[in-house]
Each structure stands twice: as structure tokens, then as C-alpha cells.
């Protein structure tokens, strides 16, 4: 995950040196990331006496786009924080596996509802933060520019984050998460604070980068329509347990207003609201 130690103290290095640096990296920035699947066995999390997750079993194949929906307080954000290592489970275990089911070291990243950009760094430098510490500046800039092109924000590379709109800031946060080639991308309601039209644009962007790069994506959202539109598979969490596990049998790109998706959305809502 973190990039290896940087030897040269030079701020300005030639393209050839940069390429050599590239070659020496443990992460291959040129290639698509190695997606990391998930294997959860009896995962529990309690805060004091209050159990939030009660023995979750879940298999997520590498490269899948999984959405987790549920009421507030159902434990979905807690689960996401466990997946990216922000918290430790109090019981059970979480394993990361590759496409063949072999254990792998995950490079996991998370995008929050708020972009959490450093206001004193330019957009490009904010993206370069995603490469970890000790990366030469020129290398960071080069990677940041490519990541920004991927979220269609190249022209904003030198701006302060305060100059950007909410949707653009969230795209920068996405570029920062993607620049280090994560095998697992966790999205914690990343579109929750955006207006309806920006949101549709962002949903399509997320779908596109996921299809292009092939990482495993885990999206937490309270918006069932968004979950159905983006994900391969949707699970409903209820009081720390999985109460519904649904495949979405539709290829991307999906149309808004597809009747099959609408029907699935209805079923999910019924489950969440307890009518099923």
C-alpha cells in the first residue's frame, strides 16, 4: 500500500529517472489494480455492550460491485470502516482474496461523504496525497494528473479546492483514492451531499472507473435507487445482520427507469421498511 522509500533527494528529476522510479515500485502504476475480494466469517463489532454487527458471513468475489443498504444505525458504515481497517472487529475475521480465492494483501481506499481535501494543497497535490508519504514530487504530480484525467478534472489541477463545486471536490477525492490503484474501494455515501443532477453524473463516473479499472467496490448508501443503479449485488443490513442478498441481473450501463430495476428497488425498500 504505501509506496517504497524514496532515495533521491532531488526535487527535479528527469523523465528517465521518473520511469526508473516507476519500475522500482512495488505497486505497478501502469497496470490495472489487482482486485481484492472479501471473505467475512462471523464478523462482530460491539461498542461497549451495544452490538452493531452480529456475526456477519459474506463472500464478495474480486471485482464485484457490492452495495450495502439499510436504515440508519443498521451497521453499514461500521462494516465499511472494518473493511478498510479504520476499526478492528471485536469478533470473527475478515480476509482478502484474489480471483482464485488465494489470500492477498489488500490495497484498500475509502471515499467519504465529505471530500476531506486539504484546503492548503492544490487539487493535484491533494490527489498526490493518495500515493502515500515519501513519493518524489514530480512523480506525485505525474500520477495525479493521470488520475485527474480519469475523473475529467485535468483543467483544475492547479486550483485550490475552495474554487471547486461540491461535485468536483468529490471527483478529486475519488481521484485521490484511485491514484494508488486500490484493489478495494470503499464508498461511504460518497454522493449523499450532491444535488440530483451532479449525482447522476457522478454515478456514471463511478460506474465507468469501476468498469475500466476492475477493483472491488463496496458502496454504502441509504439511497436504494442508487444502489440498484450502480451495483452488481445489493445486500440489506438490518440490526447487524444481512436480511436480503440480491443480485442485480442487468449489465452496465443501466438506464434510469428500467422496469426490472424498479421492481428490484421496490423489493429492497419493502425489506428495509419491514413489509416483506
Amino acid at each position: 500500500m504505501p509506496v517504497g522509500p524514496y532515495q533521491s533527494p532531488l526535487a527535479f528529476i528527469s523523465d528517465a529517472e521518473l520511469d526508473a522510479y516507476h519500475e522500482a515500485q512495488p505497486v505497478d502504476y501502469q497496470a490495472a489494480p489487482q482486485p481484492a475480494g472479501l471473505r467475512l466469517r462471523g464478523v462482530e463489532k460491539r461498542f461497549g455492550d451495544n452490538p452493531v454487527l452480529r456475526g456477519l458471513d459474506l463472500d464478495v468475489p474480486a471485482g464485484q460491485f457490492l452495495a450495502i443498504v439499510g436504515k440508519s444505525g443498521c451497521g453499514k458504515s461500521t462494516l465499511l470502516r472494518l473493511l478498510v481497517g479504520l476499526d478492528e472487529p471485536t469478533g470473527g475475521r475478515i480476509e482478502f482474496v484474489d480471483e482464485e480465492g488465494e489470500a492477498v494483501e489488500p490495497n484498500s481506499r475509502i471515499v467519504f461523504q465529505e471530500p476531506r481535501l486539504l484546503p492548503w494543497f492544490s487539487v493535484a497535490d491533494n490527489v498526490a496525497v493518495g500515493l502515500g508519504d515519501g513519493v518524489p514530487r514530480a512523480f506525485g504530480r505525474r500520477e495525479a494528473e493521470r488520475a485527474l484525467a480519469g475523473v475529467q478534472l485535468s483543467e483544475k489541477a492547479k486550483d485550490w479546492p475552495s474554487k471547486l463545486s461540491g461535485g468536483q471536490r468529490q471527483r478529486v477525492a475519488l481521484a485521490r483514492a484511485l491514484v494508488s490503484r486500490p484493489g478495494l474501494l470503499a464508498l461511504d455515501e460518497p454522493l449523499g451531499a450532491l444535488d440530483a443532477l451532479t449525482r447522476i453524473g457522478m454515478q456514471n463516473l463511478v460506474t465507468d472507473v469501476w468498469r475500466e479499472l476492475g477493483f472491488t467496490a463496496v458502496l454504502v448508501t441509504h439511497d436504494v435507487a442508487e444502489a440498484v443503479h450502480l451495483a452488481d449485488r445489493v445486500i440489506v443490513l438490518d440490526e447487524g445482520r444481512i436480511s436480503l442478498d440480491l443480485e442485480i441481473p442487468r449489465d452496465q450501463p443501466r438506464r434510469h427507469g428500467d422496469p426490472v430495476l424498479a421492481e428490484l428497488e421496490g423489493r429492497l425498500l419493502d425489506t428495509i421498511l419491514g413489509k416483506a
Binding site: 502504476y29 497496470a31 490495472a32 460491485f65 488520475a147 484525467a149
Partner: peptide
């Protein structure tokens, strides 16, 4: 652009 050497689009999932 995130993947410069542009290996062919992968089938996902």
C-alpha cells in the same frame, strides 16, 4: 488515463 499502458478492457465480475 489511470492505466497508461492501456491493457484491454477487462471483464468484470
Amino acid at each position: 488515463p489511470l492505466r497508461r499502458s492501456g491493457s484491454q478492457s477487462r471483464s468484470v465480475g
